[in-house]
């Protein structure tokens, strides 16, 4: 069984790239366009890990992470923040919101996958 990943980003380009990288790594990938959409998509799945952007319309990444963490079943679901902003305070804020880790855009597919495995395990390999 491969890892199921939910990836949330408002940029179509980034979504395309995430999908490509994750699919190539053999992950099952679901996509969402912003925090709100992310929550809707999350409703119908139980991902092994979530990747989210920070700057998004409607509900940003911080709001999204908080909303996910507020759900009991997702208290420990690994969440990676995907952002171009890597300022330490942003990381601190992401962690305060409950993020597990972060990936700096532009991401290296290999490192993304490695980071996912670091937080979500090998996925029943």
């Amino acid at each position: 069984m491969s890892l199921q990943i939910l990836a949330v980003d408002d940029s179509r380009t980034i979504r395309d790239m995430l999908k490509m990288a994750l699919t190539q790594a053999g992950f099952e990938t679901s996509l969402a366009e912003d925090g709100m959409h992310g929550l809707e998509v999350l409703d119908g799945m139980a991902p092994d890990a979530i990747i989210t952007d920070i700057n998004m319309p409607r509900m940003d990444g911080f709001g999204f992470i908080e909303a996910v963490r507020a759900q009991d079943k997702h208290r420990a679901t690994p969440i990676l923040v995907l952002t171009t902003e890597s300022a330490p305070e942003l990381k601190a804020r992401a962690r305060a919101a409950g993020a597990t880790g972060w990936i700096v855009k532009p991401f290296d597919p290999e490192k993304l996958v490695r980071a996912l495995r670091t937080v979500a395990g090998p996925g029943g390999a």
């Binding site: 999908k19 990288a21 699919t23 190539q24 790594a25 053999g26 290999e110 996958v113």
Partner: peptide
């Protein structure tokens, strides 16, 4: 362990893809 698929999968990441990618592109 830890990342067998990670290593190989990511290696291909930059390279050419297969049917999967075209699916991915089409869906979005």
């Amino acid at each position: 362990s830890a990342d067998p698929a990670g290593g190989s999968g990511a290696g291909g990441g930059a390279g050419n893809g297969e049917a999967r990618q075209s699916q991915a592109a089409a869906q979005t």
